[in-house]
Design a protein around this nucleic acid. Structure first.
Lengths: 340, 340
DNA sequence: ATGAAAGCGCTAACAC
DNA sequence: GTGTTAGCGCTTTCAT
């Protein structure tokens, strides 16, 4: 590996000068400039970013802590985050905690503040705010991403999405289509993150006089299979349902499959609506109606907030929370007028 | 941020000793050991990994270069790679090139060898070996992942999967089920990466006397939609097909949907088989029969090869190529006996 | 068993 | 304009 010093030596100048021409900083004579550049080219010199980071006192990476990057929602967020980071001169390290708080803690300790300049933590049921707060106290800049309830900010800087509103939107859509016999499938445990989406949905339904959603609700996991099984229970139950609201797209896809299994036509016999708008939602047939969440916007906001935190003065008072634009309805072919 | 020096000062020793205590290296008295550890704990000291990397002359990260992490196949690979890397004390940086050779080049230049210790490059149609070779010549350790043709090694260290064989396996499965009227959908252009999977399939078919596959083949892209459209063309054509082979799972899912659209029962009227075995394959209904590729094994091999390259002596002669275990058939419910 | 000191490769004051 | 000189925080001989 050629070093700055080597380039300097061959160009007959000092490292400071080479550094200056490379970064476009300071004043450098056109003549030396050319000479240095020539040597750089000739030697194929590339600056050592680790050394630069150390010297600048600023790591060149940001970390993204997720449960498992293989979860279908995260890659899209990761992609957007990486691009936003790159735009600001940072690289993105992915940290899979595998839902293990110990691993999460380890990552925050090891990476935060030294290898990475800051950390984006994906909100999920298992995320423990204590752990994050402790790390923050130790000097790690953290932004909690995809917080679900703007009205109740977390104790950390965060990016929030109004998922309660998303639930409402889903309800409004079904109501407009005339659905009164609706069930719900929640992709998390009863006290999990998805509760707000569910509440938003239920509240909107209740306002319209549909008050028995809770009786036709299944709690479970955020997977296709869980959605499939829950739908089976719901649809083979005593009460006829004309529509099912699912708190996430993945289990909603499972519902679609159950419909096929049971010989139900979607959306004629059954309407299905999810939340998020993952890529798959528009690719499958019937394409899934859903309430789209501004993933990319959230990722960009998260990176920018994190960077401003890093540069800014230490926090005082309420941790900052940025709320993304409101989720918006995306009507595809899994939802239609109620037939009863 | 507390530094080593600060810990040393408070413990009344030098940085060398603290370093030794922390790394379990060298001889340290039990007494001082305890004292140091206490201070470390008290101050909440965490070593600065950037500084450590610089001092050790060994970056603590590996980079994974992919077209877009949002491609459904990559996250699983990335997950496995990250875990393998972590096991060896490395973190993983993801680099999305977005199919842009310039970006790929930029990443290799910036990250390779200085911020990251080495680079895993995901093989894809757009990957240009020249760019990689140039970077390698400049001292970046590179492993090309998911090379499709073990018999024709690339000019770089690589992890290969016998996709030709995967194609054969798919053919053998369909043949055993009695299929003679088969079509194929290739998830890449005519001269793209998937060609080997396709050839393997065609050759095996030809050996069994089925020689007209080429007449019922569509080339396209690696997406659900492309698969859907291609299947539509194939299935509404003049020739009746009892089975369709798809070079990748994603477009295979599209075929499944087309079957629904056209009122074809799978697998009674139509058998479908893909390659890869992405998570989705087992989650959708009907579950997709496919030829599973050892993703996790490939990721682990890739990380290990990269690390051995880094430690090892400069390459001479043929670049090393590791071949994963053979893909294996996974029969699910999208394939069944031919009805004609 | 512990300390002193020389870097790792780069940046950034400040001096000339 | 260009050079000098300190570091950044850690590791690692080499003394002691």
């Amino acid at each position: 590996m050629t070093t700055l010093a080597e380039v300097a030596r061959q160009a007959g100048v000092t490292t400071a000068t080479v550094s200056n021409v490379l970064r476009g900083r300071g004043k450098v004579g056109e003549e030396t400039r050319r000479r240095v550049l020539a040597i750089v080219e000739e030697l194929g010199y590339r600056p050592n970013l680790t050394a630069r980071a150390l010297a600048e006192g600023r790591p060149l990476t940001l970390a993204l802590v997720v449960s498992s990057i293989a979860n279908p929602f995260y890659p899209q967020f990761a992609l957007a985050a990486e691009q936003a980071a790159r735009k600001q001169g940072y690289f993105l390290i992915v940290c899979n905690t595998n839902d293990d708080p110990a691993l999460e803690r380890a990552y925050l300790d090891e990476v935060g503040g030294s290898l990475a300049h800051g950390v984006l933590v994906m909100n999920a049921d298992f995320v423990e705010q204590d752990v994050l707060l402790a790390a923050e106290k130790r000097g790690t800049s953290i932004v909690l991403c995809m917080w679900e309830r703007p009205e109740q900010p977390p104790e950390l800087p965060s990016i929030a999405v109004d998922f309660y509103r998303a639930g409402e939107i889903a309800a409004e859509h079904l109501l407009e289509l005339g659905h009164r016999h609706v069930g719900a499938i929640v992709g998390s445990e009863r006290n999990g993150n998805h509760i707000w989406r569910y509440r938003g949905f239920c509240d909107a339904m209740a306002r319209a006089g549909v008050t028995d959603v809770a009786e036709h609700t299944c709690f479970g996991h955020d997977t296709i299979e869980a959605g499939h099984d829950a739908a089976e229970r719901l649809l083979t139950g005593p009460k006829k349902l004309s529509a099912i609201f699912v708190t996430n797209d993945l289990p909603a896809l499972g519902v679609l499959q159950t419909a096929v299994d049971l010989g139900l036509k979607v959306p004629t016999d059954l309407s299905v609506i999810g939340i998020t708008d993952i890529q798959l939602a528009r690719q499958i047939r019937p394409a899934l109606s859903t309430v789209a969440v501004p993933t990319q916007e959230a990722a960009e906001m998260a990176v920018n907030l994190l960077l401003s935190l890093i540069k800014g003065t230490p926090r005082t008072g309420q941790p900052p929370m940025l709320v993304t634009s409101v989720p918006r309805l995306v009507v595809r072919s899994s939802s239609g007028p109620a037939s009863f």
